[in-house]
Every structure is written in structure tokens, then in C-alpha cells.
């Protein structure tokens, strides 16, 4: 039976003391996709990822990776998984080349692969310098090289563009997007920035306060960005009530001195405005606004209130 998911968790939970950092998560990462794992800082992303890699144990629930139960198959699974968790890991006193050599040794890979991987992340020039002299971006790229060198089927990247400059970010993005296509790799990519995910991911999971609050194709998320028409008026509450009386959808936004309606069809909005004017409401401005993904994300995570 071929498994449809590269990662499949069931009711995965991790407690630290009394607190549940990760609460009954059912993560489904389809094969050969880039799965964006999104959530604010402290939502439980890194804890989940550490459990997937067997760095920490789950309090309850189970994890299947590449069709195998993590419990009891950790070694086989690790052979096929590359990872970069939080800040890049490296041995600062050794050169980038030696760092990669250590990884190839431990995974029984040929040394010849090192130069190839160094070229992917453009570190050939700096390969023989100690890593502690690298810039943050170079360390990050080395981290990705170390994750890729074992020829993984699943790549887990935790905040991989942290600390990179814009051109570095772009490079990493292009590399990530190439992976499923060119190398048959499934990528799990975590970030607290939606903009990061939306450009590379095809699937999205959103975690907040330890719970998975959304999971599905990115498309499904973008569909939520329905446009609204905002009408600035002198008495939004009364105006909205009047419109509701006529069977139109409208919601007042008292503080903004405006109301919001999902009626966007041209003919209908013309009629609506005419009605408002006839009822002697002052209409100052009419604008159409589309919710950005960012706003949807904030709405889902309930973070808008805390900003």
C-alpha cells in the first residue's frame, strides 16, 4: 500500500508539566508537496517538529513518517529525513566541508556528494573556512546543505529563512520550490510569517496555542479572502440596520465610522448606495477591500486583538 502522506500524526500531544504545548494534532502532510506549517511564536511549531524528529518524546498520540511508525522505526526513518531545526546546527571550529563530511560519515554517504551540495547553496568558495567565520546567511545555507546531503525523501525546515537577507531568502525559496519537482522531496516548512509560506507552500497548516486550527491546500485559505465593500457614512449603526431591513448583508463598524457589506456586485451596490442616499445618510466614501491572507491568518489565530 502506498501511503498518501509523508507525515501523518494522530492526536499528537506534548505536555511540559501541566501545560499542553501541543494539543491533539493531526498533521497530514501529503507527499511531494511543500507544506507550510504556520503559527505565531510559541504556538508549538518547534515542539511538534522536535517530536517528528524524535528529539523529544510525545506525551501521547502517534506519528507516522513515510509510512512507518516513528516508534520502533526511528533509525530507518532518520535515514530518509533531512532537517534544519531552529537556528542552524554546525561545528564552528570546523570548516563547512568537514561539517558536511561528518554528516556523510554518519549516514554512510559518499564524500563525492559534498561538492555537489555545496554548489546548490553556493558555498564552494567558503567551503574550507571555519564555519564560525561565516555570516548568518552562510550558516543557514550550510544548514540546508547538511539537511540535503543525505538525499532525504522528507525535508523538515524550521524557520529556514531566519536572518537571511532578501536575496538569500529568494535563493532559498527557489531551492525549496525545486525540491519536490526535481528530487521528489516532500518539504515541511515552518514559519511565523505568512508571506514566507504563501510564496512557496502548496499546503498549509496553521497552529495556534498548541492546536491545529486550519489545514488544507493554500487555495482553500485564499478563498477566504472574500472582498467586501466598505461604506463610510455619518451614522453607520443606523445605516446598517436600515440595510439589514432591506435584506442586505451589512455590519456596522462604529469606531471607523463605516459599515461593511459582502454585496459587491456592481448593480446591487449602486442600488444600495442609492437607498442610503434616499434615506438621507451622508455617504462619504465607498471602497472595495479584499482581505489579505495576513488578515485571515491574524483572524484565525486571534492575534489581531493582541496587536
Amino acid at each position: 500500500m502506498t501511503e498518501e502522506y509523508a507525515i501523518d500524526t494522530h492526536q499528537l500531544t506534548r505536555k511540559f508539566g501541566q501545560r499542553e504545548t501541543v494539543r491533539r494534532i493531526n498533521l497530514k502532510v501529503p507527499k511531494r508537496e511543500v507544506y507550510g506549517f504556520l503559527g505565531p511564536n510559541g504556538a508549538g511549531k518547534t515542539t511538534t517538529i522536535r517530536m517528528l524528529l524524535g528529539l523529544i518524546r510525545a506525551s501521547s498520540g502517534n506519528i507516522r513518517i513515510l509510512g512507518k511508525d516513528l516508534n520502533g522505526n526511528r533509525m530507518e526513518i532518520l535515514k530518509d529525513v533531512g532537517s534544519l531545526v531552529e537556528s542552524p546546527s554546525y561545528y564552528g571550529h570546523l570548516s563547512g566541508y568537514t561539517n558536511l563530511k561528518i554528516v556523510t560519515l554518519m549516514h554512510g554517504m559518499p564524500e563525492s556528494r559534498i561538492n555537489e551540495v555545496l554548489a546548490w547553496v553556493r558555498l564552494e568558495q567558503a567551503a574550507h573556512r571555519p564555519v564560525k567565520s561565516y555570516s548568518l546567511g552562510m550558516k543557514q545555507r550550510l544548514g540546508i546543505a547538511m539537511a540535503l546531503i543525505t538525499n532525504p525523501k522528507l525535508l523538515i525546515l524550521d524557520e529556514p529563512t531566519n536572518g537571511l537577507d532578501p536575496s538569500g531568502i529568494q535563493e532559498i525559496r527557489e531551492l525549496i520550490m525545486r525540491l519536490p519537482r526535481d528530487f521528489d522531496i516532500t518539504v515541511l516548512l515552518s514559519s511565523h510569517l505568512l508571506s514566507e509560506i504563501e510564496q512557496v507552500a502548496t499546503y498549509v497548516g496553521i497552529i495556534n496555542q498548541g492546536e491545529l486550527i486550519f489545514q488544507g491546500p493554500l487555495q482553500q485559505l485564499t478563498e477566504r479572502s472574500k472582498p467586501y465593500v466598505w461604506v463610510e457614512t455619518d451614522r453607520p449603526r443606523e445605516a446598517a440596520a436600515a440595510l439589514n431591513g432591506q435584506g442586505w448583508d451589512a455590519e456596522p463598524d462604529e469606531a471607523g465610522g463605516q459599515l461593511r457589506t459582502s454585496v459587491t456586485y456592481r448593480k446591487e451596490s449602486a442600488e444600495m448606495i442609492r437607498f442610503l442616499v434616499q434615506q438621507h445618510y451622508d455617504v462619504y466614501r465607498v471602497t472595495e477591500k479584499k482581505k489579505t491572507l495576513e488578515e485571515i491568518f491574524l483572524e484565525l489565530t486571534g492575534q489581531e486583538n493582541s496587536l
Partner: peptide
């Protein structure tokens, strides 16, 4: 020391063996 310093343990623990 170098395992603690820059996440070396994560590299070591990715070793696919006991």
C-alpha cells in the same frame, strides 16, 4: 562543548542508528 554550542547534538542525533 562543540555539541552544546551551536546545536551539534541535533547533527549527532540525526545519526540513523541506535
Amino acid at each position: 562543548m562543540y555539541e552544546h554550542r551551536d546545536g551539534g547534538w541535533k547533527i549527532a542525533l540525526a545519526f540513523p542508528g541506535p
